[in-house]
Simulated assay, not measured.
Amino acid sequence: MTGAVFLFDLFGVIARLQSAEGKDRIVRTAGIPAPDFWDAYWTQRPPYDRGEVNGPGYWRRVAKTLGTCFDDHQIERLVAADIASWSGVDDTMVDLVEELAAQDRRIALLSNIPGELASHYEVRHAWFDRFEVRALSCRIGRAKPDPDAYRWCQRALRVPPDRVLFVDDRQDNIRAAEAVGMRGHLFTTAARLRERLAQSEAESSRP
């Protein structure tokens, strides 16, 4: 089989990382000092990303870690604020996704993303449907850098791992992909990514 498959991370590549304004809104809604809050936020995030708890369940776990309690209205506001903080996209990268899809290139997505946020993107962004495979952690029960997350993608794509170029903004996720035999590209800019995609396509087309 020839031709590369381009497997994209979402946040930090196609979608923006949390904005400072969005993070401030979450902290204000929680009413907890920022350092303690973010420790609890990230400590409890993996089960949420893997779909083991929903949004309200996640925020109750965060509250318990902080030794406090969020009422139902506050939890609703926290879920909304969290979604908003992750909702920005890079239009240049969206254009690249659309371009690759129009060229019938094989593109896929592997993202650590909780259920409520996944639904937000599926409903609001038509380009989300351009990906042949969407490996969303909340749906597949595996999150990067767990090797099984990458293996799940390989099985779904039905290609040898060395035909997959994985694009992510985190070096630890790149290393995990390379450990299962994929090739990796650490994302910095769309221009450099374009160069790497062309190189990868040429490499994969060799006998």
Results as ranks from 00 to 15, higher is better:
172 D>I: 14
63 A>F: 05
200 S>P: 07
43 T>M: 11
44 Q>E: 14
98 E>V: 12
32 I>F: 06
80 A>K: 10
44 Q>F: 03
184 G>P: 13
45 R>F: 09
205 S>H: 11
103 Q>C: 07
143 A>M: 07
72 D>S: 12
128 F>R: 07
9 D>A: 09
118 A>V: 00
111 S>N: 00
85 S>C: 04
189 T>M: 10
198 A>N: 10
12 G>T: 01
121 Y>F: 15
158 R>N: 09
64 K>V: 06
110 L>P: 01
149 A>I: 02
51 G>D: 09
54 N>G: 13
59 W>L: 09
150 Y>E: 01
48 Y>C: 03
116 E>Q: 06
195 E>P: 00
144 K>T: 05
5 V>K: 10
164 V>M: 04
104 D>T: 14
86 W>Q: 14
105 R>T: 12
28 R>S: 13
85 S>W: 10
110 L>W: 09
112 N>H: 07
140 I>H: 02
142 R>S: 05
26 I>M: 09
194 R>P: 07
172 D>L: 01
9 D>H: 08
57 G>S: 15
162 D>P: 00
73 H>V: 15
77 R>K: 13
51 G>A: 08
3 G>W: 11
137 S>R: 02
138 C>W: 01
181 G>H: 04
150 Y>M: 07
80 A>T: 08
59 W>H: 04
2 T>D: 13
118 A>C: 12
158 R>M: 03
176 A>M: 13
97 V>C: 04
22 G>K: 00
167 V>F: 02
72 D>E: 08
206 R>C: 11
152 W>R: 03
78 L>S: 10
134 R>P: 00
42 W>A: 03
105 R>K: 13
100 L>N: 11
30 A>S: 09
132 E>V: 02
121 Y>Q: 09
10 L>F: 15
59 W>I: 12
91 D>G: 12
15 A>W: 00
149 A>C: 05
207 P>Y: 05
106 R>F: 06
123 V>I: 13
34 A>V: 13
203 E>P: 02
67 G>R: 12
128 F>G: 07
83 I>D: 06
24 D>T: 15
95 D>Q: 08
37 F>P: 02
115 G>W: 06
104 D>Y: 11
138 C>Y: 00
154 Q>V: 00
202 A>C: 04
99 E>Q: 14
204 S>V: 05
73 H>S: 15
29 T>V: 01
47 P>Y: 01
114 P>V: 15
22 G>E: 05
44 Q>M: 11
